[in-house]
């Protein structure tokens, strides 16, 4: 019998007003869970997909983590920045356009207004729409705990479905993205039967720098086709430094597809996903290079 839960399990609720207070609680080793928008966590708790925490910690008291700013060319997005604010941020649209495309592709306004980009990453599902874009942007995550901090590259952050390198007493405070040359162009394609209203069946992000008809830089990020979001590094290697041409692009797209390891689920078969990785990588690179 399927039990259909609607109500939340029992927990205490705390909303720390300062990071000191937060890290004190986290270091106490209680069974607690932090959340920001709650758009992933609340449904999971309702569905009893995770063990309910004794204490739910609302990060929204830490107002200082709500920002999107540029410092010395580097983009900084605080842990409380919503998906909507990133999707519509002028700086992001102008200088890191692929990230605004990815943010725009996430769900309806009701979700975008609550959910955060950092929450999207920390939740760590393979289909997280911001992940392929953040991977090609070489984003770094600033992580803090009571007595320390560390910086982790996004390609080392995910370790499996719903798993990251975060320890229980740590939170991500910020996403950091170094300046991207203004000549670079990017595309995020989300393949989904209901546009932004469904999760990605396949997500493909491509960031391209070209110089004199050559691929000076090319980065390919894939979502929903491996246990974590990944970079298609072998496909990138094939293209880097080479003259832009159709045959090479076709080959790279095939290699990107080989690099993926999707599963069958109710959204699509693994075979279909592999075919669509090839199709979308090819389409994205052709569109960006204007090769027919």
């Amino acid at each position: 019998m399927v039990i259909f839960y609607r109500r939340l399990p029992k927990f205490e609720y705390i909303k720390p007003e300062s990071q000191n207070m937060l890290f004190e609680i986290l270091s106490d080793n209680k069974n607690c869970s932090v959340y920001a928008g709650g758009t992933d966590l609340i449904p999971k708790l309702k569905k009893r997909l995770i063990k309910p925490p004794d204490v739910l910690i609302d990060l929204k008291g830490l107002n200082e983590l709500d920002y999107i700013k540029i410092e010395g060319g580097t983009l900084k997005i605080g842990a409380l920045s919503t998906i909507y604010s990133v999707a519509t941020s002028k700086i992001v649209i102008e200088k890191f356009n692929i990230l605004s495309q990815a943010a725009k592709s996430i769900a309806a306004f009701q979700i975008q207004n609550r959910g955060t980009i950092v929450g999207n990453i920390c939740n760590a599902v393979p289909s997280a729409d911001s992940a392929p874009a953040l991977l090609v942007l070489n984003a770094k995550l600033n992580i803090k705990k009571k007595d320390g901090s560390r910086k982790v590259n996004i390609d080392e952050f995910f370790i499996g479905p719903n798993k990251t390198v975060l320890d229980k007493d740590e939170i991500v405070t910020e996403v950091e993205i170094s300046e991207v040359p203004s000549s670079f162009k990017g595309i995020y394609y989300k393949l989904s039967t209901r546009g932004k209203m469904d999760l990605a069946t396949v997500g493909v992000a491509v960031l391209l720098g070209s110089d004199n008809g050559r691929f000076s830089d090319i980065r390919i990020g894939l979502g929903a086709v491996a246990p974590t979001p990944i970079r298609a590094k072998r496909a990138e290697e094939l293209l880097k430094g080479e003259k832009i041409n159709k045959e090479l692009i076709n080959n790279a797209a095939r290699i990107a597809s080989d690099e993926s390891s999707p599963i069958d689920d109710h959204r699509a078969s693994a075979t279909y996903r592999k075919i669509m990785v090839e199709t979308l990588v090819k389409r994205a690179i052709c569109r960006l290079t204007e090769v027919g």
């Binding site: 609720y13 758009t39 929204k60 609550r114």
Partner: peptide
């Protein structure tokens, strides 16, 4: 606009 089913009353 938000989905009130995903917001805690406390908030």
């Amino acid at each position: 606009p938000v989905n009130s089913c995903l917001v805690l009353a406390m908030e």
